[in-house]
Design a binder for these strands. Sequence first.
DNA 1: ACCTGAACACCGTTCAAGT
DNA 2: ACCTGAACACCGTTCAAGT
Lengths: 215, 215
Amino acid sequence: MESVLGEAVALLDEAGAPALTFRALAQRLGGGVASIYWYVANKDELLDLATDHVMGGVLADLEKLPPSEDPIDDLRAMAVTLFEAVVHRPWLGAYFMRNTDVQSNSLRIYDLLGRQTLRLDLTARQRFHAVSAVVGVVVGSAVDMGQEPPQEVLDGAVDRDAFLGRFARTWRELAPEEFPFVHEIVDEFDGHDDVDQFRSALDLTLAGLRLQAGR
Amino acid sequence: MESVLGEAVALLDEAGAPALTFRALAQRLGGGVASIYWYVANKDELLDLATDHVMGGVLADLEKLPPSEDPIDDLRAMAVTLFEAVVHRPWLGAYFMRNTDVQSNSLRIYDLLGRQTLRLDLTARQRFHAVSAVVGVVVGSAVDMGQEPPQEVLDGAVDRDAFLGRFARTWRELAPEEFPFVHEIVDEFDGHDDVDQFRSALDLTLAGLRLQAGR
DNA sequence: ACCTGAACACCGTTCAAGT
DNA sequence: ACCTGAACACCGTTCAAGT
């Protein structure tokens, strides 16, 4: 069982979500295709379990984080750690927290994040929404950034900067009256850092939360 | 071409992403499977174009929105409109803004949102990040909410409240010392409104943005 | 320019049968 | 309890051939 999930994650990490097929997995395990069905009910459950397998490691990282006196700073540090785990595994975003019956590590992570909001002066509903928002920023950013490479980047034929640059060039050719905002930000878009973009989105949410909690 | 995209969207709306196959689409169009390849290069492009087809309607809705004197309120109204279009079409979240060469309506929507930030005292980079954050909240929330129903809900065998209630029951049985946050919010989670959750996440981001823009 | 049938190489899943 | 080969019903995509 352990090795099934280990190989599944390895396959996903090496070549992305489409690479995880029962046939490829069986071959790496040196067994038959149908054997996997003794461990998991179907592919969805395989992905759920693979996700939770990875989350076990993330949970350990999160627990190692030193607490500070500011719950919002702690929440930020945890969100960044979670992001770093998810961003290189875009397949994960779609499954994280999808089925907490099967994903016990994911639920523990959710609880760990949420505990920081218990230190803030908020209603239960505000706490629930705050953690949903933070998880949303993490998963949303990571999935968005992970799906970006359209094949050529994965192949190494075109690097990310060249990929962004090609869009930037097209955007610069648009009529400025029709696309004033695109022109305003095209230089920022060109060669932008994904982590910066994530941190900004996270900081906006956390600034809003700080305001709401009155501190 | 128009009818290819129309039927593709109809298929997606009626039965979700897995229902869109070239064979099903060809049957509805009363033609052969291979014919579709005269209009689109592959399935990814079909999804890109179907997304932009829908976005044409959303763009029209956005342009009808009455402007106010507060750019952040306008941004909120636009985000809500976009959300309402995406939430019932979760397949869309994965494709929106994915390839702006093919998705001209999506790019127009992006520009329309961004124009509101031009009315705020921000740097170009802050504007770029702000719009990314808002789009992230919309798409992230919508995808998260859209993927929720695990089949039984779609079948109508179990409604959403019962589905949430089943998780809530499991959560209530967890040890409170181990999952203090889960216990804190389980009543909020049980039967919660997706739209509330989205609006809260959006409001946190916009509150942070308002602070950043100094108004 | 537009459409087609038939084939190809793949999927996830099942099932009767083995140890 | 654990594994298997072979089959089933599907996919996206291609291609030579038609109008």
